[in-house]
């Protein structure tokens, strides 16, 4: 038994002549908050559908929580909560009635009262407990989205697979869902979250996989991906950057740093204080050398790659919403 929540080997899917997914080896460790990224049409959804047994692979194997999918789906999927490609519910029934019906479709241990309790808990967690008898058809987009997440949570899954969980939510809703996901993660739930919002994934996830044209092109820890670029961003304080003072500081910095100076100094973008901005190779004691040369260093920041940089550099398709 592995401690992998999700593992695929050589996962491949062809829809007719369209190659949707090619040779994907996904590895999600239990406890991960895994961000699944990629432009539209990159094969994310087809992969997620194969993990859930909705789409049958052309080749390759899928293991979820130690069982094979689709063969062991009946044993494995009860421990998985999922929202795929948006929420869906019976429009003329209330959110509560929808969750009860769906929960009753597959009997789980515990009596009727336990089941009702769990439905109430899930509605409560997503702020839908007070909605009452209103039919889902009258829900806002955000409420439907929260109902979809509530539905995935009813059985307190070990693995939560969510496609665009904050889609259509207002800022309060996004905060609610993000907090909830972090809380569930702290309690041991493994998260597999696909999203277009890279900044959101950067904050939420510990690990990311990036799909491009059916291939998994990146799979790594967020910390590793956000490695320093080897560049240092230094701001020098000057009396007046429009005066000769700024030009003198820039020239002196150039002498002191030599080839370590990567770009010509420019006036610092900070409007509050006069300064000169330097882009420097992160080698040796840059700050010490500048200070000993008589320059006042106001700020020195190690430049890191952003997830956006990583994703954009590794994906070729121009996806709608990517990097936004």
């Amino acid at each position: 038994m592995s401690d992998l929540a999700v593992q695929t080997q050589g996962l491949t899917k062809r829809f007719g002549r369209v190659q949707a997914v090619t040779d994907v080896d996904l590895r999600v460790t239990e406890g991960d908050r895994y961000g699944f990224l990629g432009p539209n049409g990159s094969g994310k959804t087809a992969t997620v559908r194969m993990l859930l047994g909705l789409v049958l692979p052309t080749a390759g194997r899928v293991r979820v929580l130690g069982g094979r999918v689709p063969q062991d789906a009946a044993r494995v999927l009860p421990q998985v909560g999922a929202m795929v490609e948006g929420p869906a519910a019976i429009g003329h029934l209330s959110g509560r009635a929808n969750l009860r019906l769906l929960d009753a479709a597959v009997p789980t241990p515990g009596g009727r009262r336990t089941r009702r309790r769990r439905v109430e808990d899930a509605l409560e967690a997503l702020g839908l407990a007070q909605v009452g008898r209103r039919p889902v058809r009258a829900y806002s987009l955000g409420m439907r989205q929260r109902l979809g997440i509530a539905s995935a949570l009813v059985r307190r899954p070990r693995l939560l697979v969510l496609d665009e969980p904050t889609n259509g939510l207002d800022p309060q809703g996004i905060a609610l869902v993000t907090d909830l996901l972090l809380q569930l993660s702290a309690q041991g739930t493994t998260l597999l979250v696909s999203s277009h919002l890279l900044s959101e994934v950067e904050h939420l996830c510990t690990r990311v996989g990036v799909m491009d044209r059916g291939h998994l092109v990146v799979q790594d820890d967020v910390d590793a991906l956000r490695a320093p670029t080897g560049r240092l961003l230094v701001t020098l304080a000057v009396r007046d950057q429009d005066d000769d003072d700024g030009a003198r500081a820039a020239a002196l910095a150039g002498q002191l740093l030599g080839s370590r100076l990567l770009e010509s100094p420019v006036p610092a973008p900070d409007p509050g204080a006069a300064g000169v901005r330097l882009v420097v190779a992160d080698a040796g004691d840059v700050v010490g050398d500048l200070v000993r040369g008589g320059l006042a260093v106001r700020e020195a920041v190690v430049e890191r790659r952003t997830l956006t940089d990583v994703v954009l550099s590794r994906t070729t398709a121009v996806g709608e919403g990517m990097g936004a």
Partner: peptide, 14 residues
């Protein structure tokens, strides 16, 4: 059409 089929099947309802 309503999208509820996938949610029934991942319950999983065989």
């Amino acid at each position: 059409q309503a999208g509820t089929l996938r949610y029934l099947l991942v319950r999983p309802v065989g």
